[in-house]
Structure formats: C-alpha cells, structure tokens
Design a protein around this nucleic acid. Structure first.
Lengths: 286, 286
DNA sequence: CAGTGGTCTAGACCACAAT
DNA sequence: TTGTGGTCTAGACCACTGC
C-alpha cells in the first residue's frame, strides 16, 4: 500500500500523545466489572467472546438452550435472556425449531450510491435504481397527502397523489434467499402530473424517466435527502427479511423544481446489514 | 400551500388506479390476525393503539407492571414482554425505579447537514462540526491501522496514526439531559502529518483546519461517504444515551487528495431518533 | 417507606424443524 | 419422535426512585 521503503517517521508531536487507552478506565478491573453484570449478561459476554475469537464461527450453531442451562447452571429464562442479548446486538440469528446460529457476516454489505448522475451520452439523469430490478409487481395506488408528507410536498391536507411501491433486488442476481432488498416508494402529486405531460402519460414510470419529464418542461432539479434509522414495523421486517432486533435504514428524497417547488417525494427502506449508502463528492478546485 | 383555487384536476390515468389497498390482505380479518398473536403482543398492540390515538400522550406514564397484570389478568413476565415489545419499537422508555413513559417525539429530530461547503468570504471549507461544541475533553491517542481502517486509508497493517475522539453537542445549547450528541472520531496517519506542515503542527485540530492544511499543500479534496446503521455496543449506548433497543446511525467519511490518495478518515455515530442526516444537491443546468 | 422496574427460579405446554 | 425455540404461570428477592 505505502510506497515508503522505510517506516513512516513519527511527527514531532507523537511523543506527547499516549497510546490508545484501555477500555476499562477509572481503576475498575475488568473482573470487577464482569462480576457486577447480571448473570445473563455474563453468559452473553462469554458467548460474545467465543464468537469474536472465532471459536464459534459464522454459521455455527450456538449451544442450545438446554446445553446453556446445564453448562452455566442457570434457569431457562436466564439462558434465553443471554441469547436475546446477542440477538439484539445482531450477533446471532434464531430460527424457531432450528436453533440459533452465529450470524454470517462473511459477505459484507453491498454499496448503494445515492448520487443522481448525468449521463453525457444519453443526456439522461440516472439513479441507482437503474441497476435494480423488481422482485414482484409494483403496487400502484392513489391516496391523499396528510401530515409530514403533505408538508414536505407543500400540499394542502387531502390533496391527491399517486404512489408507487416497488420491492427491488440487484439486477442479474439469482433470486437467492439472502439477496439484498430495497423497498422503494415514490409519491407523485396529481398537480405535478397535470403540469408535466411526460408524467401524466405514466406517473408510475421509473425515476430517471420522471426526472427526464421534469427537465423537459424546463425544471432544474434539486434534491433534498434525509437519512435516518429506526426499528422496523413487523410489516417492514417481513418484506425486507430483517432479522429480529435489526434496525431499518431509511433514505428519503424530495425533488424540487426551478422555483424550489417540491415535485416528487420518495423513500427507500433497506437492511443496513446488507446494504450501505454511499456518496462521493468533490470539493472546489482551489 | 397550493395556488389553485379549484381542486387539482385528476389526470386521465387516475381512473385506472385503485385507492390505497387495505393493510390486511388475503381475506384474513384483523380480528383473526389479532387472535393468533401471542398474548403479550396483543397487550402491546392495545397499548400501541392507545399511544397512537393520543390516549396515552407523549411523556405520560405507561400503566405500571402491577396494573398491567391486574388489568389484563396475566403473569408479570407476560406484562413485561409487552412492555419490552414497545421499548424495542422505540415507543416508550423505561427508567429503573421511575417507571415507563411514552417517548416524547414532540421535538422531532434535528437535522445534520453532511455537506462540506466552501465559505467564499473566508475561503475556508466548513462542515457541520463548526456549529457543535465538545461536551467533554477530547480523547487523543495514537494507534496503528489494522483491518478495514488500514484498507480504507490504503495503509499497510500496523502503520501508525493519530486518533481523536470527541463527544459533541449543539453549540449554545444548555447542557440538557436529552440534548442530542454526536460521537466523532478522526484518524490521521503519521504519513499525512509528515507531508503536511499545517497538520504536523496540530494533528488534532478541528476538521476545517485539517482541510485547510491539506488544500494549502495543493490537494483538491474528494470525500467518500458511507452511511449505515446497526445496534449499538453497550458502550456506545451509554455515551450517546441511547434507549434500550434503539439503533445507532453511523456515518463514515474518507478524505482523498488530488491523486486519490486517502488522507483522513472519520466516523460519526449518533442517535437517529434525535438527529437526521441531510444533504441537498443540485442537478445540472440543462 | 412504598412503588417502580430488574433479575432469577422451577416447571409447564405449544409450535416448528429435522429425523 | 426428538430436539429446538416460543410462550406462559406463580412466586421470590434485589435495586432504584421519590416521598
């Protein structure tokens, strides 16, 4: 990686900087800390250490509840609490009747570039969803704007809009069980349809087509993105095949027109364990 | 909001699009679904409904375990399981000895703009952390690059670097209990220190200062960002005051120089319930 | 002090998966 | 059928909070 033939010289300040501090500050020994942890957390810690050391390899079954009860001499509730702690931390996954296994982190998350790029040959704005294909038929419906959705689209409460929900998976991917999935929803107000011939023709077209239709009527587009995470609803957990206790990553984007008028709103929900959002930006040439 | 004096006319396609489908497809009634839920989930659903309807207002105490046991005629474990479900969904927070209260979502999350902007007056690159101030003294240490960190910085395993951990809160904020917090860590390889006089002077300077030092030696900077979420370690949960069962939002940024050589790496950890990441981008003028 | 939630036990029945 | 995890009961003791 480094081109240097000699080790990197230490900067002058290095002498004044300590090595990385230990993880148990305040003069409390690790043993004391461990002893005052609840029993089930001590068991969880023990299993955690075995996972991190590779003693329990990814995919390997965790000791069953019965074994844990015997090995640690605890009640079943305590053993289960230990496993729950590991599950909540995302270290293991549990399947009813099959057992609990160490979570397979072998295939790291894939990247999803959130940038909207301009393809100079086709003169078309492209987004990530060009490289993703629907798992099942899209759900199309019409509804009315309320609450936060109405506010971000600057619509009165009750104004009608089209919605478009798609469940996507990477294109050219065998429909594997563990394949990453994205739940993508696009909202198009009736008002925007009416003002934009290309959109009125098909309000449920792919995003790049909607963008093209908007630029065709003279808009210079601006996007406002927000990213957050929260625990999924049971419904979201099911459609995205999220393991129990795993969080949901949420990306929303509002497309604004030339006069900063909001035109479209979309949100993207995904499993951060399988997909990571990325962007690359360049600073000014100085 | 809308300038129209008449209701938005429906586009022609509207007739072919159904209303929003119901949430219980497949001909299964809501009652049937509810009946086959575990007891504790039924109780949780009941409480959930009371929270969403406002019957249990934000900040209001949830019925105590004793009350739940009497009201629903269940054992304590079942009552606790119901509360745990609500806690995992982020709807309530529990404090030992004080009780469980409906989580206060009144103050929505604050925005954190991830953009690096160029201030034309000071000719300085600025980032969000200009508006945030440290809660406690920064932790400075030196360590060595290993694993993923070594790879993203294109360093050989074991090459030395400085690290800088800060816990930040919005500037001019009273140090309230529920104030948002950000855990920010910056890594600076020794090699970059040595090549950049402005950084060798103080490798632990704020980010805009580091950027300025890098542009001063001729670099045009590029940033590569990744965003993901996961469950926090107990340590992270403590420093960021994350409620039990709440996820952690993780933003990493690698700064590259003119020759795409990685120069700095930073990561930012925060509570997505209190802070949302945002960006605004503008498309090409067409 | 009383009331709250946190941990823990022993024992039971059920639902699901593999054999 | 066996072994797995999922739910549930009744009862106990402890730790923290606020009066």
């Amino acid at each position: 990686m480094s081109d240097r033939l000699t080790p990197t010289p230490a900067p002058a300040v290095a002498d004044q900087v300590p090595e990385r501090p230990g993880t148990t500050p305040g003069g409390v020994s690790a043993k004391t800390l461990l002893a005052r942890l609840p029993l089930y957390e001590q068991i969880a810690e023990d299993l955690r250490a075995q996972i991190e050391s590779g003693h329990l390899a990814p995919g390997a079954p965790l000791p069953s509840e019965t074994v844990l009860i015997e090995r640690y001499h605890v009640s079943r509730i305590t053993a289960r609490a230990a496993v729950r702690s590991l599950r909540a931390a995302g270290l293991v996954i549990t399947e009813h009747g099959r057992g609990t296994r160490v979570r397979d982190a072998s295939t790291g998350p894939i990247d999803l570039d959130t940038a909207v790029t301009h393809d100079p040959t086709s003169h078309r704005l492209t987004t990530w969803d060009d490289a993703w294909s629907p798992v099942e038929d899209a759900i199309r419906y019409r509804t009315t704007a309320t609450g936060p959705l109405a506010r971000t689209l600057a619509l009165d409460d009750g104004e009608p809009l089209f919605a478009h929900e798609r469940l996507l998976t990477p294109a050219n991917d065998a429909p594997a069980v563990g394949a990453p999935r994205i739940a993508h929803t696009v909202f198009v107000p009736f008002a925007v349809c009416v003002d934009t011939p290309g959109i009125e023709a098909d309000p449920f077209a792919p995003l790049p087509t909607l963008y093209a239709a908007l630029t065709a009527v003279g808009h210079t587009l601006t996007w406002h993105d927000t990213i957050t995470a929260r625990m999924p609803t049971p419904d979201e957990a099911a459609t995205l095949a999220l393991p129990e206790g795993a969080p949901l990553l949420l990306h929303t984007r509002t497309t604004h027109g030339t006069d900063h008028r909001p035109l479209l709103h979309e949100h993207t929900r995904l499993d951060p364990h399988r997909i990571t959002l990325t962007t690359t930006t360049t600073g000014p040439q100085l």
